[in-house]
């Protein structure tokens, strides 16, 4: 797998990262390093092996669907960059 500039730009867009021209070669090299390392995995025969997502093979525990937290909107919004009337402010999306 060769990490080209267009791969980097595409993935950066998916990951919501801004990449300027000067950063491209460094990010491409960083990705290439890890993906080359990952190539070693191809030597393993994993035919029919069930992938692990939880190391204990545990399933998600369920809890009763009941309110256990208090409403702390003001506290949580006190650390937000910009709020108004209990809402988070972002740049206008629809003109």
């Amino acid at each position: 797998m060769e990490v080209t500039d267009s791969v980097v730009k595409n993935i950066a867009a998916l990951a919501q990262l801004q990449v300027d021209k000067t950063e491209l070669p460094r990010l491409a090299a960083g990705m290439q390093n890890i993906l080359d390392l990952a190539e070693q995995m191809q030597s393993a025969d994993t035919e029919g092996v069930t992938p692990i997502s939880n190391p204990l093979d545990a399933t998600q525990q369920l809890r009763p669907d009941a309110v256990i937290e208090q409403d702390q909107r003001e506290l949580f919004q006190s650390i937000a960059p910009a709020t108004e009337d209990g809402l988070y402010l972002v740049p206008r999306v629809v003109e």
Partner: peptide, 24 residues
Amino acid sequence: MVGAFALSAGYYDAYYNKAQQIRR
């Protein structure tokens, strides 16, 4: 970046799923 790549369409099986199989 590497993570977003490994989870992206077309590469998930070759990278992420393979890694989770090796984990087994």
